[in-house]
Design a protein around this nucleic acid. Structure first.
Length: 305
DNA sequence: CACTTTCGGGAGGCAACGAG
DNA sequence: CTCGTTGCCTCCCGAAAGTG
């Protein structure tokens, strides 16, 4: 996934063998570490690094882990300062089949055409790549946010707070306009606030952590409006929505996910268990981990009509 | 019993409108 | 004029019903 790119670009130079897998393990270990490092720029202590190193598979030395961590810090700072040229995801979107025709064609049952019934009056329905130009089609249907964009959004949200969409757009999600960021934020908050609905589908908004997206996808969903409104966007609560997590992956090979290529909504611990609630999610230095309100209601048992 | 098709509903993004 | 919010439209997923 591309989210690793930012961290690996600089970290790769520190040690010779930080592979993508290593980096993933590092992030997982970081997420699993009970006590987060000082978030206010202070250097984490040796014990913390030792614990982190111990948690990283592959017998990394404390020093290696420390350098890797520091590189990560620099990365975040660089992104923060706008010194890192971020990829133009919009371009990527157009380069790869956005989803439309390809996704529909690859759909499990040979393509869902039913949308023709919607759109009031037929015709207007999406037709899996018909005659209208691709550009027009994309303009109409929008460019999905990638995981990377969403993480940058979260980063910016944490940095600038709720409401400063322009700063977030300029400094973090440079591939999106402030309006797009605001709209995305709107949906994001709505999503978080409506977590207790029994019908849940995985979505990009399930990512509430800037990093470790693969595993945190299963660790969130909780009302956050109060915190957001009080200018504490970092206090995003994590909680288990009663989301469904069976993305069918026919043949074992996961289909091209909708968002940037990483599996979304995959369960980490099967059904969300209370223990998973409040699990500190990995957060870059300077970014407080999201907190979980005590007494968070358990997700309702999934009941189908 | 298995497979295919149809239906219902949730999710995401864009555009328009309103307020400051 | 800019920013934020709300509404509308489109797409995809999952479940149910029907047919072979």
């Amino acid at each position: 996934m591309t989210s690793q790119a930012a961290t690996t670009t600089t970290t790769a130079t520190a040690e010779a063998a930080w592979t993508k897998e290593d980096d993933k393990a590092f992030e997982n270990a970081l997420a699993a570490c009970a006590a987060p490092p000082p978030a206010d720029g202070g250097a984490p202590d040796d014990d913390w690094f030792a614990a982190l190193a111990a948690s990283v598979p592959g017998a990394r030395s404390v020093e290696e882990v420390r350098r890797h961590y520091e590189a990560l810090v620099e990365d975040v700072a660089a992104i923060d300062a706008g010194r890192v040229p971020l990829p133009r995801y919009a371009g990527e979107e157009s380069a790869a089949p956005p989803d439309g025709a390809a996704a529909a064609a690859a759909s499990k049952d040979g393509g869902h055409r039913r949308d023709e019934r919607k759109g009031g009056g037929g015709g207007g329905g999406y037709d899996g790549g018909k005659s209208c130009s691709k550009a027009e089609q994309e303009r109409r249907k929008g460019i999905p946010w990638t995981e990377e964009e969403h993480r940058l959004f979260l980063l910016g949200l944490d940095k600038f707070g709720k409401g400063d969409w322009r700063s977030i757009s300029r400094n973090f999600v440079i591939s999106r306009t402030p309006t797009q960021v605001a709209s995305h934020a709107q949906k994001y908050f709505i999503r978080l606030n409506s977590m207790n609905r029994d019908r849940r589908r995985s979505s990009i908004h399930d990512i509430t952590s800037v990093t470790a997206g693969d595993q945190v996808a299963a660790q969130q969903g909780a009302p956050i409006t109060g915190h957001q409104a009080t200018g504490n966007p970092a206090a995003v609560a994590l909680g288990p929505p009663g989301m469904k997590h069976h993305h069918h992956h026919p043949g074992g090979a996961p289909p091209m996910p909708m968002y940037g290529g990483a599996p979304m909504g995959h369960p980490v611990a099967g059904h969300m268990v209370p223990a998973a609630v409040g699990t500190p999610v990995m957060f870059p230095p300077g970014h407080a981990p999201y907190v979980v309100p005590v007494g968070y209601p358990a997700p309702p048992a999934k009941m189908h009509q």
